[in-house]
Structure formats: C-alpha cells, structure tokens
Design a protein around this nucleic acid. Structure first.
Length: 165
DNA sequence: GCCAACGTTGGC
DNA sequence: GCCAACGTTGGC
C-alpha cells in the first residue's frame, strides 16, 4: 500500500466533480510527464491512498481523499488525432502514456498549501520542495498520517469502518 | 499577469 | 552529448 498526491485543476476536475461521477470514479488521463506516468504505470496499485490536491486556483491545497481504483492502462486520448492530448508518436501497439482510475472517498476541509508549509511533519513532501511541479508525487506513510490527522476524525484510515461518502 | 523553475526539443 | 530556445506549471 502506497500513498500519492495527485494534482487537479478544480476548474477542470474538482473533488466535487469526482464525487458526482458514476461510482465516484474518473479516469485520470492527460498526464504528459514521464515521471508522473512512470508512477502510474509502474508503482500505483488499486487501493493506494490519494490526496486529492487542487492546483492553479485561488485556494490551492488538499481538498479530499481518494484511492487508486485500477491498474494503469493506455490513455486513449493520446490516439485522438486533433485532440488536446494527441501524441502523434503514440500508437495503440506502442502506447506512450498511461492513465488510472481514481475513486473519490470523501471531501475534506481544504488544507491550504500555505498551512502545509508550516507543518514540520510535512517539510520533506515533494510537493513542498522548491521548483517541484510534478502532478503526481509519492507521499510517505508519515506524511499521509499527519495530513489525515489534520483533516480530522473519521478520515483516520482508508480501512476504517466506513470512510466512504 | 508575472515570473521562477523545470522538462522537452532539436541543431550542432 | 551539449545547450539554447521554447513551452508549461503553478504560486503569488
């Protein structure tokens, strides 16, 4: 079991959007960074915990808890000629980009980026490192537990009695 | 809108 | 393999 932080622009896909989707699940497509792709393709497993982070918005920060809901599969948008995510060098035989399904578990209070920066237990988070821009980053168990604690009782564990919405 | 920082591309 | 140019990210 591993933990991840995944960034989404709420104008595109917010935690509310995922909770409103069928099965509270969406396909995480459109990643076009090799490091982020490698995390999805090589390291993510169904059931991994996900901090759902809102980026490029007025109030950047962790907005909810989610989980990885599938193994990685080829991102279909890479094959769509004329589409925003088209990659002319990708073919169905030799796909370049991967996606996973992500299921929202619950919306939390917003944990602002500025607050995260003040918490000693989080100082090593990749998200907080200078110049870090990766849209998917691994989160340690200690960082996960510290954040879940900050977000309040009931969020303490993904394996809890009923953490789902 | 600004701009620092990073990733990718492509000429050489 | 180097590195300049360009594009993107994302906080502020």
């Amino acid at each position: 079991m591993q933990y991840w932080l995944m960034k989404s622009e709420p104008d595109e896909v917010s935690i509310d959007d995922v909770l409103a989707a069928p099965g509270h699940t969406v396909s995480w497509f459109g990643v076009r960074n090799y490091q982020a792709r490698n995390f999805m393709r090589d390291a993510m497993r169904p059931g991994d915990g996900v901090l759902f982070y809102h980026s490029s918005c007025a109030q950047p920060g962790v907005a909810g808890l989610a989980e990885v809901a599938s193994a990685a599969y080829p991102d279909a948008t890479q094959f769509a000629a004329g589409g925003k995510y088209h990659d002319p060098k990708a073919t169905p035989e030799q796909p370049r980009w991967s996606a996973v399904d992500v299921r929202a578990l619950r919306k939390t209070r917003l944990l602002p980026l500025a607050e995260m920066r003040t918490i000693p237990a989080l100082e090593d988070m990749l998200l907080l490192q200078k110049g870090s821009r990766l849209s998917i980053t691994p989160v340690s168990a200690g960082q996960w537990n510290a954040i879940v604690k900050l977000l309040g009782a009931g969020a303490a564990s993904l394996e809890g009695s009923d953490p789902r919405v």
